[in-house]
Amino acid sequence: MAPLLELDDVSVTFNTPKGPVYAVNNVNLSVERGQALGIVGESGSGKSVTMKTVMGLLPRTATIGGSVTYDGLDVFDLPSDRRKHFYGVDVAMIFQNPMTSLNPVKRISAQLTEGMKYHDGLSSSAADDKALELLELVRIPDPKKRMKQYPHELSGGMRQRVVIAMALANDPSLLIADEPTTALDVTVQRDILDLLDQLKAERDMAMILITHDLGVVKDRTDEIAVMYGGRLMEAATTGEVFADTAHPYTEALQRSIPDMTMERGTRLTPIEGSPPDLSIKPTGCPFAPRCGYATPECSTAIPDRMPVPGSTTHVFACHHPRGSAGAVQEVNA
């Protein structure tokens, strides 16, 4: 069966007064129905831009290449009636800051029911009932009271729950969550991530979780895509990414972050240097200047995406892979 959402060779260039910015380069991604994909990357990696491309949220200054298909349909060329349905009904997106999605001067009930009354023609009381149901669904404490409150009266975690409820109103098949917990405290973060997990399972919804934190996606997604400098570095099932890391960037990322199992005072292995300047058209691997395994080839030839031998799900783009891909390469050489 074809994947629910498929990105094929997507590139995004922003035309700024200072010249072009190559934000996303030749990215291939896909999500199956009911599956969760984690996109991991730091700022400037292109992870958010890629998903905004799907959602049609890019400014006019962006030049988009490649294709995005949803359920067999070309997203860039949807008939206008289908288009309305695609954004918000088929696919919904939530953001890091819930206040960007909430109107500060409207009660929660109004925010939730507005779309229902307008799009689905529900009566006020039917819409209210459905709104309450949604709030219960996202397990917000005391949902009846919340209906009458304004966004500023809610905590950050509750606001994010309201935003999730709004996103779920039309029963989307795909939910894109862009750093949904980055602004929240750790205990709240866990609750929200758990909620998203449960909702995904209950509703057989596909989910794309965008994050800078490998830890956030570790136990929660089926597949992970690691992006850096606007390129896809590695994509695989979550197990493969951690057990048989192929890309040196993924490896370096894991090593540079302290985790709870490390001895106190363990010296971290930092990634030296700085993220790439996206206004320079890349001639090689974007990670090459910071990579411990880089050779001259890495700065002159952009590595092709290739599969890890023996795996149908694990791909990487590197001249000098680690893990089993690296071992195979060595044997062949």
């Binding site: 700022s43 370096a252 302290p258 930092p270 700085s274």
Partner: peptide, 14 residues
């Protein structure tokens, strides 16, 4: 800070 930069600063402080 960016994830890849955090370790640089932590090591520097150390």
């Amino acid at each position: 800070l960016d994830v890849s930069v955090q370790a640089q600063i932590l090591n520097l402080l150390d």
